[in-house]
Design a protein around this nucleic acid. Sequence first.
DNA 1: GATGAATGAGATTTCATTCAT
DNA 2: AATGAATGAAATCTCATTCAT
Lengths: 205, 205, 205, 205
Amino acid sequence: MNDNEVLSSVKDRELIEKRRNQMIKGAISLFKDKGFHRTTTREIAKESGFSIGTLYEYIRTKEDVLFLVCDSIYEQVRERLEAKIDLQQPSMENFINVIRSYFELMDEMQEEVLIMYQEVKSLKKDTLEYVLEKERAMVGMLERVIKTCVKVEISDQDAELIANNIFIQGQMWGFRRWMLQKQFTLEEYIDRQIHYLMQSLSVQE
Amino acid sequence: MNDNEVLSSVKDRELIEKRRNQMIKGAISLFKDKGFHRTTTREIAKESGFSIGTLYEYIRTKEDVLFLVCDSIYEQVRERLEAKIDLQQPSMENFINVIRSYFELMDEMQEEVLIMYQEVKSLKKDTLEYVLEKERAMVGMLERVIKTCVKVEISDQDAELIANNIFIQGQMWGFRRWMLQKQFTLEEYIDRQIHYLMQSLSVQE
Amino acid sequence: MNDNEVLSSVKDRELIEKRRNQMIKGAISLFKDKGFHRTTTREIAKESGFSIGTLYEYIRTKEDVLFLVCDSIYEQVRERLEAKIDLQQPSMENFINVIRSYFELMDEMQEEVLIMYQEVKSLKKDTLEYVLEKERAMVGMLERVIKTCVKVEISDQDAELIANNIFIQGQMWGFRRWMLQKQFTLEEYIDRQIHYLMQSLSVQE
Amino acid sequence: MNDNEVLSSVKDRELIEKRRNQMIKGAISLFKDKGFHRTTTREIAKESGFSIGTLYEYIRTKEDVLFLVCDSIYEQVRERLEAKIDLQQPSMENFINVIRSYFELMDEMQEEVLIMYQEVKSLKKDTLEYVLEKERAMVGMLERVIKTCVKVEISDQDAELIANNIFIQGQMWGFRRWMLQKQFTLEEYIDRQIHYLMQSLSVQE
DNA sequence: GATGAATGAGATTTCATTCAT
DNA sequence: AATGAATGAAATCTCATTCAT
C-alpha cells in the first residue's frame, strides 16, 4: 500500500498529484486547528480549492485523506532527514550534526508531527501498519547513524533504545511545547539534549 | 475546574461519585478499543450499566466524559507515583527505585496512558489546561526527586529536561509498544534506560 | 428472517408494532406514487408522521422499509385468502368461490400488489428469498384447493401449473389494468376467467 | 414519440444508430445484473465502450437509455413474433405453432423480458405510454391469431382475455423461473399450457 | 432519580449532468 | 465527435442531546 493505491477515478497521473497536493495542504491546515474528526469533508474540499464532488474524484473515503496526509508528512520528514545523513562522514561531529538537524526539523514541522501523533490512531489496521512501518524505518536511520558514528561499543538493542529516545525527544519538543518552549529556546533544548546524550554515551563533547 | 465542576443535576454527592466511577470505568474500556470519537454516548451508558438518560443526569456533554476519564487517569497515576516517592529517603538508590516504580506503573497502566496520550487533545482549551496542569505537576514530582536525590550539580532547567525525558520514556513504553515490546522485556527496558540515565548524570551505578 | 428480525433500537414491542404500521402505511402510499427508489427516507418519515431520526430507531436501512412493506402486503393477502379457504367444503362450488374471492382480493389490493411486483426485485438475496417463500406458500394454497375440490384427475405438476396461472391472472388484473380494465368490469373478468378455467378442467359450470 | 425522438447532438444518422446499439447492448447486460436504478451512467458508458461524455452526445437523460432499451426489446420480440405469424396459414395447427414459438421466444429472451417487466414502470408517463402501446400491439397480434385460427365462436372480449393470458403465461416462464423451472422443462411447460388452452377452447388436440 | 423514545442538525458519499479542451 | 474532470444537489444514515413519563 502506498499513496498510489488510494484509488482515484481520475486518470491523469499529474493531475492526481497536483490535486492531492492541494488536498493535503488544505487538510493539514484544517487538521491543525480542529483535528481530523472535527474537520468535515466539505471543509477539506473548500480549503483545497475545489468542490466536494471533485474531492471524491481523488479519494474514496475521508480516511483516505488522513492517510494521504500522514504519508506525506512521514515522507517529508524522511526525505529531509535522509538528505542530512547521506552527506555525512562517520564521525562523532557528524553524528551530533545529524541529531541537531533532526531536532531542527522537528521544530520546523511541529504542527505536522502533532497531527500525526494525534490522528494516526484513526487509521484502519491496514494503513496504520503501513505508516508505522515508515516510522520504524526512520528510527532505523537513526540507529544506523549511531552504530556508524559512535566509537564506543553499543549493542544492537541499545542502539535501538537510544534511537527511540532521540526520536521521541525530537517529537516531544513539538507536542510538549506548552511545557518545554516556556523554559527553553530551541538552541538550548538541542544543546542540553545533546549534552546528556554525549554523557550517556561516555563521550567528551 | 475540577471534576466537581462537571455539572450534574443529581444532588446526592455519594451517588454522583458512584455513578461517575461506573461511567469512567465503562468509558475507559470503550476508549481503549475505539477511541473517544468513535465511541457513542449510548455505548458509554450501556457499558456503565445505566440508560442514556441517566448518563446525562451526571454530565452535560460527551466531552465531560472524556474529561472525567482523563482526570481520573491522571489522578491514579499521580497517587500511585506519590506513594512511591513519599516513602523514599533522598539517596541515589531511592532515586533509581522511584524511576523503576514509575516505569512499572506505566507498564501496568499502558492502556490508560494511551488513552490520555491520544485523546487529551480533544478536550476544549479550558479543560485541556486543567489536565495539562496535572501533567506539569507530575513532571514536577520527578524534578523534585532529581534535585533531591542526585548529588551532582544540576540546574533547574536541566532537572526539568531530564524529568521530561524520563516522563515520556515511561509513556513511550506503552505508546510505542509495537516497536519496543518486541525487542525488550520490561525488565530490560527499565535496566537499560536507567543505565543510560545514570551515565548521563555521570553517576556510577 | 421475519419482520421481528428487522432490528430496532426501541425496546417496547407494542410501540415497535405501532410505529412500523405507521411506517408501512406511509411508505405504501408513497411507493404507489413514486416507487421505492424515487421515495426518500425523509419522505417516508414525514408521511409516517415522525422525524427521520425516529424512523431510524425502528429500522436500520432503507431496504428494511421495503422488506417490511412487502412482508406486510404478503401477510395481508395470505391472511385474507386463508380466511376464505378455511371455511370451505371441498366442492366444485367452493372452489369457484375461492377463485372468485381471490380475484376480488387482488382487485382490492391492486396497488399493493403492483408495488410488490415492481419493487421486490430491489430486495437483497436474503430477504428476497424470504419473500418468495411466502409467494410459494400462497401458490401452494391454491394448489391444495385445486387438488381437494376438483374431481377430475390432476397430476401434482398440473395442479401447480394451474395454480400459477390463476395466481398471475389475479395479479394481472391489477398490473395490466391499463389494458384489461378498459374492456372488462371486475365481474366480467372474473366470470370469463372462471369460465375458461372450468372448460380447461373439462368441468360443466 | 419513437427512438428517433430521443434527442442527440450528433448529426450523423448512421453513427447515432451504431452508438445507440452499443449503448443498448451494454445497458441490457448491466440492467440484467443490477437493474436500472442501481446502474450508473458511467457504468453504461464504460460497458458500451465509450466515455461518459460521448454517452451524453447520444442521449439527454439516463431515462433515455431505459427507453431505448425497452423499445429495442419490444421491437425484437415483435419482429421475431411477427416472423412466425406471417408465415402461418389459419389453421389450428398453426395456432399451436405460433403459441409454441411465442413460448420459445420468451424462453430465449427471458432476461430481456425480465428487464422490461421490472423496469418499464420507471419510465415517465409519456414514454411509458409509448411502450405500453407496443405491448398492446403484441397482444393484438395474438388476438388476431386466435380469431383467425380458432374455429369455435369467440367474442372479441374473450379473444383479448385469452391473448392476455397467453401473453403473460409466456412472460411468467421467465419471471417466475425460480418456481416453474424447478418443476418443468420448457417442453413440458409449453405442452401443458397448450393442453389446457386447447381444453378451455373445447378443442381436441 | 431513572428511563428511553424522539429529535434534527449535520456528516459522508454518490452520481447525473455539463462543458472546456 | 470524443473526452473526462468538475460540479453540487440530494440521498442515506448517525448520534448528541432533550424531556415527558
